[in-house]
Amino acid sequence: MNTNESSDEDKALRKLLNEWRTEASLPPRFQDSVWQRIERAQTPASPSMLQVIAHWFATVIPRPAFAVSYMIVLLAGGGAFGWEHARKETTHIKDDLSERYVRVLDPYQTPRE
């Protein structure tokens, strides 16, 4: 289709539309409701919690400052937990050994075979 043909069709369509008349009346507040629909379509929908998390996951975690802080916190937390666990276990072992020392020396506490 070339430009002349297209222009001819436009003219014909324009003429037809100018001749077209309708008796039907618009519903009340037609324009208002059209604008409201346009506004609703333009307002972005609020994101779901999952989307927020996914966005955070994809954008915040890879930030160097966050990644380094996260690893330092886990490093310190893991170390502190390991230290605390070892401290408790060592205390328990020492208590056992001290009791054992007394049992070995005291004939009234020595376990019989």
Partner: peptide
């Protein structure tokens, strides 16, 4: 992100294991 999360957990577990065994 997933790699960073997993690496962090691994670092935490390794820190726990090292400190625990040394202490």
């Amino acid at each position: 992100s997933l790699f960073i999360l997993v690496l962090g957990l691994f670092i935490g577990a390794a820190a726990y294991g090292c400190i625990y065994s040394v202490c």
